[in-house]
């Protein structure tokens, strides 16, 4: 298997450059979610520019739409558009590369940005696949702060009711949101019990560990008769001590000094990953 860990650090560098170019971006959540996206797009999902109109493709909705810079970096690496195009256009006047997913761009199925929409939309996608007898899978990534949206639990209820085993939801559990600790803002611990009580198979993993994520998605595929949720325990800002576990980096553009330090840290971790 390709060294996806090193790839994830390389793509983090792209994310930082995209944010510098666009003068804005949700950098902390980009860094926590990117290992999940890399595992899905380069290890798990049957999706590429060649089959993006094939009804049998795997489907993905980025419910935590604010992590769009990480999504753009991954989709560009996958060939849906070029990285240079993103750098040049992100957040610019008249651009399609806006600050939340936009399905006028190739590879993006649904617009998101308002939280609590991705899971219910994916229920519909998973039901459609079942109605048509397709074996493709449906994935969505939510933030942990997002779990306060009631519509998430409407979706959770329907996923359990319809026993959608072709559906896998992932929670990017980085424990921070814009105002601070998720547990201070609104209590979200006991995720395992909550999802299980809605009829879901629950897997908790280190969400910045690609091989652990791989194992979790394989277990999800093998789980029949219920949908799976992967509680991906991640580090917000993962990749550089400048940002790690700091709520202030929810949405922030690094200063020039911070930029240089972050890029140095990311490159060091990429190098280390290459020699593991």
């Amino acid at each position: 298997m390709e060294n996806l860990k090193a790839k994830a650090y390389e793509l983090r560098k792209h994310v930082v450059d995209i944010i510098m170019a666009g003068k804005g971006g949700h950098i902390g959540g980009d860094m926590s979610v990117i290992d999940i996206l890399v595992t899905l797009y380069f290890d798990q999902m049957n999706i590429s520019p060649e089959n993006m109109d094939d009804p049998n493709r795997d489907l993905f909705v980025l419910s935590k739409g604010h992590s769009v810079e990480a999504y753009y970096a991954v989709l560009a690496e996958k060939g849906f558009f070029s990285y240079e195009e993103v750098l040049e256009n992100f957040s610019k006047f008249g651009s399609k590369f806006i600050g939340h997913p936009n399905n006028k761009l190739p590879g993006i199925e649904m617009n998101s940005g308002s939280l609590g929409h991705g899971l219910p939309v994916c229920i519909g996608m998973a039901l459609a696949s079942r109605m048509d007898g397709r074996t493709n899978r449906v994935y969505t990534v939510m933030g942990d702060g997002e779990l306060a949206e009631g519509s998430v639990w409407e979706g959770a209820m329907a996923g359990g009711h319809y026993k959608l085993d072709n559906l896998c939801a992932i929670v990017d559990r980085n424990r921070l949101q814009i105002s601070g600790s998720t547990e201070d803002v609104m209590h979200h611990d006991s995720q395992e019990e909550r999802w299980a009580s809605f009829g879901w198979h629950v897997i908790s993993v280190d969400g910045n560990d690609i091989s652990a994520l791989h194992d979790a998605f394989e277990e999800a595929k093998a789980t029949k008769g219920k949908p799976t949720v992967v509680i991906a325990n991640t580090i917000k800002g993962c990749g550089s001590p400048v940002m790690e576990n700091k709520a202030g980096w929810h949405h922030k553009v690094p200063s020039q000094d911070e930029y240089e330090q972050i890029m140095k840290d990311l490159e060091a971790r990429r190098e280390a990953a290459l020699h593991e």
Binding site: P55, H117, P120, V121, I123, S151, G155, A158
Partner: peptide
């Protein structure tokens, strides 16, 4: 669950329904 009703419909439509 009207919110679910509409989002699920959108997901179905995205897949050709």
């Amino acid at each position: 669950a009207e919110q679910n009703l509409v989002s699920i419909s959108a997901g179905l439509a995205k897949c050709g329904k």
